[in-house]
Write a protein that binds this DNA or RNA. Structure first.
Lengths: 354, 354
DNA sequence: TTGAAAGCGCTACCAG
DNA sequence: CTGGTAGCGCTTTCAA
């Protein structure tokens, strides 16, 4: 017989204890804490009272062993530094909790591959996995599928990979920016890219460039930022703005990059938007502050999180989608004072030249 | 007999399955995945090979039922909006993971009391609880104590409450700011407070004010911000800076408040630091950017997290502290260009008056 | 070193 | 509606 091996043993009040004190069976205690089981109101009250007196709380770990549901959702956050991600995490966690689930958070440490941590999460028998800006191998996707653990990739997708994905309409966002900058009379445009392989980066860029081509705008410089970071945006902007024929509008792959771009421009003695317009992507909280007042595409984080929950079967009607779904939610252009209408300025100059 | 009630059943490969395929007992499989149990190298290899082929992964949920250790640490984050908290969360999660634990994250939704969610976490049998900028009642503290679940309050403490606490030296930080502002020739100082009951707010303020008194500086305005928010800082600064005899230095209870203060000053046509010096508290990443370049007290987040882990017994040597510990880590003054030396400026004016 | 068996705390089935 | 009982997948004695 297994005798109390652990010093902590005995600390916990079990259903058995409650059962004994009021002289009923342990099953009855279980029923009192179940929504579905049938139990008389009177008995339920007796149980609850005794439970409270003893400080009994059902052990959900033991429960999950039988129900095969831990009610835990794993969230893998590849990045917490970019201010966009706290927003995403907040939204995700709120919705997970609202659906009655707990969040098991994992932040890969530097150099740790997401593939390596999935088995860990699986061992914890999580009911679903949400990957933000991270990807897994198709082998790992298969392992998750074999265990019936749905996986959704948030803010990124991998064509051909058989997991669900939710992202905002990055191609459409790029197009919106192109339309807007052209409509406001910008003539020498530039796109500052981030990680080559990130779908967010690729789609924003291709939407932007293809629309410019449609609009017969020929001059679009492209600069590799390398990363979605302030420093990358800063360095790229410096390079672009020091050119002889410098661009009159810079579109950055993300807001933080754009912040770097604005600071770089100011450091060069250029006015934003007077000399150069700056556009970002995400609409992080900082973009709204007067110091940057950044024109940007707002990512519909709330809707994206909702879509993720639905796909995972944690939303309204339960039951995860079986075929890999790829949901795309449309963003909105938010215009602030990091951009301006150059036609008006030009007209003004024509009427009253300096 | 309980027959597979759940549709998901059968999906999982169990130790029993592995045992059958290589014709050994299930206990042997268990031993192969245990550090301590004695098993021959050869057998271990056989087991691991078979396990890999079948895709077997131990079910840690089942394990924890016996070991009474889930290896999960609950982190309660009252706030993810203030940019200081993502930094804290990142650090905390990294250290929790490095110690071999998983993070169960809880973000109270608007209006949700922390006391109400603790039972939830306890049901998940977490091994420890970390509360950031949140407090629980002494009744709840007692419940946790009765279950031997250590609780540490991070960046806040409640005198008299019997839980562990880790914070930075907020009194000392306030003092450092006072010393610095006085030494650099500021004469009309102001402190912008946040939540009255927050120990962070109280201590920073009392350190600041008491040192000023020691230094025989009489004029220190105090303004209630109300909250640790950009808007609160902005509004408070507007009120202070519109006064006839306006202050020449503002010390805000936090960085985000200070950002609001800087923007307010600029909106009023005042130069920072030319007309007014601004000091914050926390040293969030944004404080380092040129647009704000905020002088502030850097909170030693890494050291604070380390202290929390030690107290909880998750650090180097295991074993939680039994008596409530209150650890205080010292911060550092980081001077940037939101403040200036007014003595130099004054001397200059005396030599060559405008 | 290995196998057999008990049981962690709970749910789910079966009778009554 | 309630009690009895069989296990969820695992660790841990105890014997061999």
């Amino acid at each position: 017989m297994a005798k109390r091996a652990n010093p902590k043993a005995g600390t916990q009040v079990t259903a058995q204890d409650v059962a004994r004190t009021i002289g009923v069976s342990q099953s009855t205690i279980s029923r009192a804490f179940s929504m579905t089981a049938s139990i008389s109101e009177e008995m339920k009250h007796r149980v609850i009272k005794a439970a409270n007196k003893l400080g009994y709380q059902p052990n959900v770990i033991a429960r999950s062993l039988i129900t095969r549901q831990t009610n835990m959702v794993a969230i893998v956050m590849a990045n917490l530094v970019d201010p966009f991600y706290p927003v995403v995490l907040d939204e995700l966690v709120q919705q997970v909790q609202a659906a009655g689930f707990q969040t098991l958070l994992f932040v890969p440490s530097a150099g740790q591959k997401v593939d390596d941590i999935i088995p860990n999460l699986l061992q914890y028998q999580v009911d679903a996995i949400i990957l933000t800006s991270a990807t897994i191998s198709s082998a790992m996707a298969r392992i998750c599928a074999a265990r019936d653990t749905p996986v959704v990739s948030f803010n990124r997708y991998v064509p051909g990979l058989k997991i669900h994905a939710v992202s905002s309409d990055n191609v459409g966002g790029g197009r919106q920016v192109a339309d807007y900058l052209v409509a406001t009379g910008h003539e020498r445009l530039a796109f500052v890219a981030a990680q080559r392989d990130a779908t967010t980066n690729r789609d924003r860029r291709s939407g932007f460039l293809s629309r410019l081509k449609q609009l017969k705008i020929e001059t679009c410089l492209q600069e590799e930022g390398g990363e979605f970071s302030y420093e990358a945006g800063y360095a790229a902007a410096k390079r672009l703005l020091r050119q002889a024929k410098r661009p009159d509008a810079l579109f950055f792959a993300s807001d933080v990059m754009a912040f770097g771009g604005i600071d770089a421009a100011r450091e060069l003695g250029l006015s934003v938007p007077g000399d150069v317009s700056i556009v970002g992507y995400d609409d992080v909280p900082l973009a709204a502050l007067p110091s940057y007042a950044l024109t940007t595409i707002r990512q519909p984080v709330h809707e994206m999180a909702k879509a993720a929950m639905e796909i995972l079967g944690l939303g309204g009607e339960r039951g995860a989608a079986s075929a890999p779904e790829n949901r795309i939610v449309r963003g909105t252009l938010i215009t602030r004072s990091s951009t301006m209408d150059r036609r008006a300025a030009r007209r003004l100059r024509e009427i009253a030249p300096a």
